[in-house]
Simulated scan of single mutants.
Amino acid sequence: MALTLYVDTARWRNHQHHVLQQFPGLVPVCKGNGYGFGHERLADEATRFGADVLAVGTVHEAARTKDYFGRDLMVLTPYQLTEEPVPLPTRVIRTVASVDGVNRLVGARVVIEVMSSMRRHGVSEEELPKLHSALQDVRFEGFAIHLPLEAVNAVEEVIAWMDRLRAARLPLHTLYVSHLTAAELGRLQQQFPQTRFRARIGTRLWLGDHEATEYRGTVLDVTAIAKGERYGYRQQKAAGDGHLVVVAGGTSHGVGLEAPKAMHGVMPRAKGVARAGLATVNRNLSPFLWQGKQRWFAEPPHMQVSILFLPDDVAPPTAGEELTAQLRHTTTTPDRIVDR
């Protein structure tokens, strides 16, 4: 009995094909938990559709993924001067965000990231002249710019950097970009035909068709409970008559874990306040649905299972049935993936 990720494989791959057509030269991204699919599965998919480069998040991910993907690997996290060495094959391309970093990676394949409006990391405009001598000792693969998800003037920001790099007389054969639309990328390619623009895409490629995937947790047990009876690890009292439903999927899978969200507008903020208020009295909605409604946790999820409370006016599921779960792919690790 398991928390399962079901994949409509034909539909999922059709979406991949559509994205690949929109973004010629696309570099697929496989980082973190592999967007819920795992590194091995996504490496296989990238191999299947002929990717020449697969981007991963860290050197440790590169060390694991090198056995699944036989072509070039690009590490997105920039090289750190103090990092401990990790054995990697020569086909690994390192991202570098400082001139000192370039100087340290003699003989390595490198992509140099410039500072975008993200203000996260990158080489500044003032440092560009120092790159001339540094580039002589590395295998330079191109520049990169990581843009915000909600960039106001994304194309203009890239154009400004192209002008700076050109003014500094640095090689502009390839620029790796993130978070641009196909139309924006096409505009840049038309304006700078001598530069190859390559989009690095993860979420849009693997998760862009929400109907292609579905999480489901198996119901393991169903127990009737009366108002006032105690239950669970913390021996809370049942608020009313009903049923406790034990379903596969707990904190080890990512159930109950949630990344902070940026809220815009009055209504989303009001809903956030309401959820926080309910949580203080141990009322938390689970990601599991039954009869079309999201159901409440009876108590905080356990490591591998969750316990839900269904009031007595709701007919409970039976053991062996599956409940659909609304889970975030990037924080969920299912027990198994089933293609259908």
Rank of each mutant, 00 (worst) to 15 (best):
T4F: 01
Y6W: 12
V7D: 06
D8G: 05
A10Y: 00
A10F: 02
Q16E: 10
V19H: 09
V19E: 12
Q22Y: 06
L26R: 05
L26H: 04
V27A: 12
P28I: 06
C30W: 01
G34R: 08
Y35I: 08
Y35D: 07
G36R: 12
G36P: 11
F37R: 04
G38D: 06
E40Q: 15
R41E: 14
A46R: 01
F49W: 15
D52K: 06
L54K: 05
V59M: 04
K66C: 07
K66Y: 00
D67S: 10
D67L: 02
F69E: 02
D72S: 15
D72R: 14
T77Q: 08
E83Y: 01
P87M: 01
P89Q: 03
P89A: 05
R91D: 02
V96A: 13
S98C: 11
S98L: 11
G101S: 13
L105V: 11
L105W: 11
A108C: 09
E113G: 10
V114Y: 10
V114K: 10
R119F: 04
R120P: 04
H121D: 11
E125I: 13
E127D: 15
K130D: 15
A134I: 00
L135W: 11
R139F: 02
R139Q: 15
F140L: 05
P148L: 08
P148I: 07
V152C: 05
V152Y: 06
N153M: 12
A154N: 01
A154Y: 00
W161H: 09
W161K: 09
W161Q: 09
D163S: 05
L165C: 07
A167T: 12
Y176Q: 06
H179T: 11
L180H: 10
A182I: 00
E184D: 13
R187A: 14
L188Q: 12
L188T: 11
P193E: 07
Q194T: 13
R198C: 10
A199E: 13
A199F: 01
R200D: 01
G202M: 10
T203A: 14
R204P: 00
L207R: 08
E211T: 14
A212Y: 09
Y215V: 05
D221K: 14
V222H: 08
I225W: 04
K227F: 04
Y233W: 13
G240H: 04
D241C: 04
D241E: 05
V245P: 10
A248P: 08
G249P: 05
G249F: 03
G249Y: 03
G250N: 03
E258V: 05
P260R: 13
A262L: 14
G265L: 11
G265T: 10
V266Y: 11
V266Q: 12
M267P: 01
A270R: 14
A270D: 07
G272R: 02
A274P: 01
A276F: 06
L278E: 13
A279D: 12
V281Y: 07
N282H: 13
P287M: 01
F288S: 02
W290N: 07
G292P: 09
K293C: 00
W296D: 10
A298E: 02
E299N: 03
E299H: 08
I307V: 15
L308T: 02
L308V: 02
P311K: 06
D312E: 14
V314W: 02
V314D: 07
A315Y: 00
P317C: 09
G320D: 04
E321T: 10
E322M: 12
A325N: 05
H329C: 00
T330I: 08
D335I: 03
